[in-house]
């Protein structure tokens, strides 16, 4: 996903709504995704989430994210499918069985993971973490150290992406060519290691910078821009919960 906290995206719905409303919406979608046990409604929910994210952020879901979802989803689909033996048997080889029930279970579980991943990434990419901290601390009374911890965890994805961009650029400029076969796997392993090392260093830097500015010194802190819940937020939250209840009872 190419979502960022940038100016071009800031006019779009997902950038404009407050973090609390987004969290409520994410929880509603998660409840539905976990509740649904049939392929068609799960597929419809997945499509609706995808379209809502694209329209709400004004940006397409990026190829790297689709690749990541495929890398997680395809093996998971295979394993889930083979783990359930219900309904008609379509194929059998030794102990392995492919059944109609297994296929449906695999598809539902995989789509569930896709939905949870997409919504989490969308929340991470379209939310200003300082705003999220303000909302959690001032409205939900979450201790600010914990709220910052959660918010920084959300920033880890963009951080990984930035680190990946830098690492890849450095490697290309140093003459690394795209490998094939086993060499490509080794190259990827090496590359991922460098990204994580770089990200951990960045996190250490951020932690050091926070501490040197008195973070955690007192049990509470002031906010220059105190979080104010928009007047429209209760309607969006209530509407989301209502729609979820209706769908929960009908699907």
């Amino acid at each position: 996903m190419t979502l960022t906290n940038n100016k071009s995206g800031s006019r779009k719905f997902l950038y404009r709504i407050d973090p609390l409303t987004k969290i409520v919406m994410l929880l509603c979608i998660s409840v539905l995704a976990v509740h649904i046990e049939h392929v068609l409604p799960q597929l419809l929910l997945f499509a609706a989430v995808w379209i809502a994210i694209v329209l709400g952020s004004g940006q397409m879901v990026s190829t790297p994210l689709i690749r990541l979802l495929a890398a997680i989803g395809i093996p998971y689909f295979g394993l889930s499918m083979l783990s359930v033996r219900e309904g008609d048997i379509w194929w059998q080889w030794g102990a392995l069985q492919l059944t109609s029930g297994g296929l449906e279970y695999g598809a539902v579980m995989t789509l569930r993971i896709f939905i949870l991943c997409l919504t989490s990434v969308a929340l991470s990419m379209t939310t200003d973490y300082r705003e999220l901290v303000g909302a959690l601390v001032l409205k939900l009374k979450v201790p600010y150290r914990l709220a910052y911890g959660l918010a920084l965890a959300l920033t880890f994805l963009p951080l990984l992406r930035e680190e990946a961009r830098l690492t890849l650029a450095a490697r290309r400029l140093r003459g690394q060519q795209r490998a094939r076969g086993l060499a490509a796997l080794l190259q990827t392993k090496d590359y991922m290691g460098a990204i994580f090392t770089g990200s951990i260093r960045r996190i250490q830097h951020i932690a050091g910078a926070m501490e040197s500015k008195g973070f955690g010194a007192y049990p509470d802190r002031t906010f220059y821009h105190p979080f104010v819940l928009p007047s429209s937020a209760p309607y969006w939250m209530g509407g989301s919960v209502l729609v979820t209840i209706i769908l929960y009872l009908t699907v």
């Binding site: 300082r130 050091g208 910078a209 500015k213 008195g214 007192y218 509470d220």
Partner: peptide, 28 residues
């Protein structure tokens, strides 16, 4: 980059005083 805590310029400058419980008006 090793000194900044991600955010806007205003967020960065306000971050320390906020942690030290400085009042919003004074931070401004």
């Amino acid at each position: 980059d090793a000194e900044l805590v991600v955010g806007t310029v205003e967020d960065e400058i306000a971050f320390g005083p906020e942690n030290l419980r400085v009042a919003g008006e004074e931070i401004g």
